[in-house]
Amino acid sequence: MTFPSGTLLAQSALSGVFIGSLYGLLGLGVGLAWGLLHVINLAHFAFAFLAAYLCYQLASVGGMDPLLTLALIVPLFAALGAALQWVLERFDVSPLNSLLATFGIAAIIEAGIQWEWTADFRKLESVYAGRTFKVGVLFVPLPELLTLLLSLILAFGIWAAMRYTNLGRALRALAEDAPIAAAFGINRRAHALVLAGVCGALAGIAGVCLALTYTLTPSQIYAWVGVVFAAVMLGGLGSALGPLTGGIVIGVSEAVTMAFVSPSWAPIVSFSLLIGLLLLKPERS
């Protein structure tokens, strides 16, 4: 191992923050559904990829500005998220079974993507791609910066909504004691649909960020699962700011390991963090 140069270290840490913010953005929806709805939603990742491909389609082929596609993608995926929740409720699916059921849905969506867009790599060439600022000695790519900003805005927005709105308080009350919350007039089913819709919308937004920053291929859906779960567990289930914090911690440790040890070590870092955490603080799971 060579002695790290300060610039390289800073540039790696910065790229870790950027990828970590995408882990956090994906983890935000996963963690809210897990912590508050007791649904472990693997379909969230497939929703995000479906949104990424839609964004790619609308922007590359349709010539739309990728950020403008949010106007279509957000409502569409909110509806998808709520519809999924409705089905899970309809069949009274337990948390463990929700993992299996949503895995099935993810596989179906993956097949659908494969059928429509093939397994070829797709890269969105947009006005944002390749744009880079130089801040001091560091390079800051615009798509990644947009992802970080969106993640921050959404995480803090949801954190504030959970604390300061009737809807947020109702959701937290339901998560802690649903029958008593209902006895005070809170309609559990309606709130679960709303929250699932928010999670669906978050998947859609994460998908647009994916399309802006990554090369897409359908099988990549599963590559994100482990590391995003790690971010969620690190940050705490049902927390709004936790997944983003956890995601950035993991992203930075991965990027620094990649730069100074070896790229192949990066996954080991995040999963060592996760396993260590589960051993040290088992009550988090």
Partner: peptide, 24 residues
């Protein structure tokens, strides 16, 4: 009626063991 409709009919409960939302 579903349970969330009882409260607006004018009924409120102090349940056994209190059952506060302890994290709030």
């Amino acid at each position: 009626l579903p349970s969330h409709r009882y409260c607006s009919a004018g009924i409120a409960i102090v349940p056994e063991g209190r059952r506060l939302f302890t994290r709030m």
